[in-house]
Every structure is written in C-alpha cells, then in structure tokens.
C-alpha cells in the first residue's frame, strides 16, 4: 500500500458528467494519478479497494432509500468528502420531481411501477450527511476540480469563489450581454466557476453553478420581466439544474404563486 493520499469517486443519481471531468482533465490526469492513489473509481478502473479514503468525490443526488443508506457508508469511509456538481450540491435537474408526485412519473415510465422503490424527493448530499466542500456546476469545471485536489494535497485553501458570474465576465473582458444586448442572464445571481463561459459566447448565463453568496432574485427577475420575459419563463429559468437550491427555489415559488 502506498503512502499517497487515497482518492475515491462515488456516484448517486446523476449523468456521470462530473466524474468524467476528472477523466477529461487530460494533461492533469497523469499528474493526479501520480499524486494520489486512485483507490475507488469504478468508471476508470475495476481495481476497487475498500476504504477508508482520504478524499471522496461524490457525484449525484439522493433519490432512493438505498442511496440514503449508501451515502452514510461513504461518509463513514471518507476523511474529506467533496460533493461535485449540481446533483450532489442541489439535487440536480431530477429535483423537479420535488414539485410533483413521483408516482405519476413511474406509472408512465415503467411497465411495472410497483417494483420501483424511490424517494418522493431528489435531495443534495448535504441534506443527509456532513459535507466538507462543495464544487458546483453542471458539469463541474475540471479546473476547479484540479484546484481542489491540488489545494488538499498541499495543505492550502482552494481558490473557489462564491461571488457572481459577473466578476468572471468582467475579469475576462466580456461586455455584459444583458446590458448591451438585452439577453436575459442569470449571471448576477449565479455563482462563478465557469469563467463566464456562456456570456463569452453572447448567451445568457443559465445558472448551472447555482446561487451565488447573496442572491437578490427579486431584483433580477423584476428586471427580466421589465425586459419582456414572461413570468412562466422566469420560473422555468430558475428551475433547471439547481431548481431545488434554496434561493432559486424560493424565487421560483414566489413567482409561480403569482401566476
């Protein structure tokens, strides 16, 4: 057994896109493999060794009784637990079920829905166990993932900001798409981390990194409606990958209640 820190990757209800970010880290992947022992990463290797693990990356939301049980085992086996992506940190797009009756869905999808054992909600990992660090995004930024691993390895604080996407747009010199082109953008209430990706291609931010540190959704959505966006479309914009994150959830519920 090596003396390198032991890394594990776990998946719950998710699309695998976030853990793929680790495989997609290209140049950095070899350096990661050099710096840590990849002890449990089913998507990368069949060589799965039991815990405990120094760092566990957890992808996906908790949607079944089995998940709810298993996440406690993962917590027990992990010294440092990092949730990765919108599913693990906010419940993901599947949290749209939280506004509906999930039994209706199963009756449409499955021939024999009586065999489906699922929870009525999709919830973030932090609702079930203590989480040490969260990486947002749908998917996460591979730069941020490498940054967290690098910071943990060298005992320093990760540089993961919680301010708005606007800061990243301004740092990279992107003219504001909302002000200059009238494009509705969630950037002012969305957490940075993507390096202002969508506005750099003249698209509005769709909030995939979830709520920033001090969300004033009423001000932004009021402006959107002033710009001519229908309230049903505002609700839809807030209810995507981070629909169940509290500030987005409260904002969409408040607007939906007026419809």
């Amino acid at each position: 057994m090596s003396d390198k820190p032991r890394l594990a990757v776990f998946k719950f209800a998710s699309c695998d896109g976030c853990q793929l970010s680790l495989l997609d880290a290209e140049d950095h992947l070899l350096a990661v493999a050099e710096a840590v022992e990849i002890a449990n990463f089913a998507e990368a290797s069949r060589d799965i060794t039991p815990g405990p693990y120094d760092v566990s990356l957890v992808e996906g939301s908790i949607t079944t009784p089995h998940d709810a049980e298993r996440i406690r085992e993962v917590r027990r086996d992990s010294k440092f637990l990092v949730t990765i992506g919108a599913c693990a940190t906010a419940g993901g797009i599947q949290a749209l079920r939280n506004w509906k009756d999930v039994r209706d869905f199963t009756s449409y999808v499955y021939a024999n829905p009586q065999y489906i054992e699922t929870l009525s909600t999709s919830t973030p990992v932090k609702n079930h166990v203590e989480v040490d660090f969260e990486l947002r995004g749908c998917p996460i930024s591979k730069e941020q993932l490498i940054e967290v691993v690098s910071a943990l390895l060298h005992g320093r604080r990760p540089n993961i900001p919680s301010f708005s996407v606007c800061v990243e747009c301004k740092r990279r010199g992107t003219p504001c798409v909302m002000v200059a082109q009238g494009i509705p953008c969630l950037g002012p209430i969305t957490q940075a981390g993507c390096n202002g990706l969508c506005p750099a291609y003249e698209r509005g931010c769709f909030g995939c990194f979830g709520p920033m540190e001090s969300v004033n959704a009423a001000s932004l959505t009021g402006k959107w409606m002033e710009m001519g966006v229908k309230s049903s479309d505002v609700v839809r914009a807030l209810r995507t990958y981070n629909a169940y994150a509290e500030p987005f959830r409260e904002a969409s519920d408040a607007i939906a209640a007026t419809e």
Binding site: S164, P188, N216
Partner: peptide
C-alpha cells in the same frame, strides 16, 4: 439594497 444584487459590476 432591495434593488442591488451585489453582483459587483
């Protein structure tokens, strides 16, 4: 503060 989003623009 009701209008300001603290977005830093």
């Amino acid at each position: 503060a009701k209008r300001c989003m603290a977005c830093a623009n």
